[in-house]
């Protein structure tokens, strides 16, 4: 972890929490979809739930947005208990659900204004705000077209605009890029970053795309079978499986200096095999320079050097014991997800 990031990290931990979840669970019959999760989301961060289908990500979001009633535990959003003040919670958060929820028979603008009406935003305000939001997601040219003529990416952007209509400080996004192509996905990421940076919003998203969690989220919670397995920044998660691997090539006949390398600050582990040292370090960039300096200062030679960063895939594999793959969930959830993906490609 670089210094800059550790600064950022302390900064986040000092911020007030906008979401506090304690031991939250949700069962459907005998199935424990969410089984005692606890976490906090800090103001202004992008917090991601990473896990396979059926891990309990959507269920957690649905409980937090009061669509589902929790079976146990408690959760607070902006200081409001989600059970006792559900209407207030709904009023203050924005939601972009996994499915495409816009009415296909209405235009994009009509859809957003309808959303505004449901929030009780007066028409004197909602029309201008709706147009503003359509501009934000670059849909102003399609504002008066029926949603049935929109592409998958346009629909996703419209959902995003709808989720912002009530001026939320906290926005929930359930699989915001499900089924989108790479380019459209990048565009959605751009909007999400902009919401954080320009509007200082807090974003809570779920994803089963590792690269999405890695590039977008400030902190990630890995969730599997309804349990949170690990929470941390993407770099922390990668670092916690042992850090970067530096491979230093030396002249084989020169003396073994493993123990000297091991003494270097930042170095965690050294193994010599033939003409190379395999060094593990949490901050490979800095350690590798020190290793080169040290070897040269002994009058020895470095023949080659390489640095490999651990990926989130490896971290995920380490924590859950398997790769992130599609898993069968209940029939309705799968059906609705398939429909979302089909529409995303239209």
């Amino acid at each position: 972890m670089s210094n800059q990031e550790s600064v950022k990290q302390t900064e986040y931990s000092q911020r007030p929490s906008i979401v506090k979840v304690e031991n939250l669970s949700k069962s459907f019959g005998s199935l424990k979809a969410v089984d005692g999760v606890s976490f906090e989301v800090k103001e202004g961060e992008i917090f991601g739930f990473l896990g396979p289908n059926g891990a309990g990500k959507s269920t957690t979001i649905n409980v937090l947005t009061t669509l589902l009633r929790a079976s146990g535990g408690k959760a607070e959003i902006a200081g409001l208990d989600i059970q006792k003040h559900s209407t207030e919670v709904r009023r203050s958060v924005g939601v972009v659900p996994q499915e495409y929820t816009a009415d296909e028979d209405l235009t994009g603008l009509q859809n957003i204004i309808l959303c505004a009406d449901l929030y009780g935003i007066p028409r004197s305000n909602s029309r201008s705000h709706a147009i503003e939001l359509l501009k934000l997601v670059e849909l102003e040219d399609a504002a008066n077209r029926k949603v049935s003529t929109y592409s998958g990416g346009m629909r996703r952007r419209l959902e995003l605009a709808c989720g912002l209509i009530n001026y939320p400080k906290l926005l929930f996004l359930d699989e915001p890029t499900l089924g989108l192509d790479v380019q459209t996905r990048a565009a959605v990421w751009k909007y999400i970053r902009m919401l954080k940076e320009s509007y200082h919003m807090t974003l809570f998203l779920t994803t089963h795309y590792l690269e999405e969690a890695d590039s977008l989220c400030d902190r990630i919670a890995i969730i599997d079978h309804g349990h949170i397995i690990k929470i941390g920044t993407p770099d922390e998660l990668k670092a916690s499986i042992g850090g970067d691997v530096i491979v230093v090539g030396v002249v084989e006949t020169e003396p073994d200096i493993s123990s000297d390398i091991a003494k270097i600050n930042l170095v965690k582990d050294v193994k010599k095999s033939g003409g190379e040292y395999r060094v593990k370090s949490e901050i490979g960039e800095e350690a590798s320079i020190k290793i080169i300096d040290m070897i040269r200062s002994r009058g020895l030679h470095v023949t080659k050097i390489s640095l490999t960063k651990p990926t989130l895939d490896e971290a995920y594999l380490e924590f859950t014991g398997r790769t992130l793959r599609e898993e069968e969930t209940n029939r309705m959830a799968m059906m609705s997800q398939r429909m979302t993906m089909r529409r995303a490609r239209s």
């Binding site: 709904r90 009023r91 659900p97 495409y100 929820t101 816009a102 009780g120």
Partner: peptide
């Protein structure tokens, strides 16, 4: 079926 109900339910209506 088409998700609008979930949208409406997530609003304070």
């Amino acid at each position: 079926r088409f998700g609008f109900m979930n949208k409406a339910l997530s609003t304070p209506v």
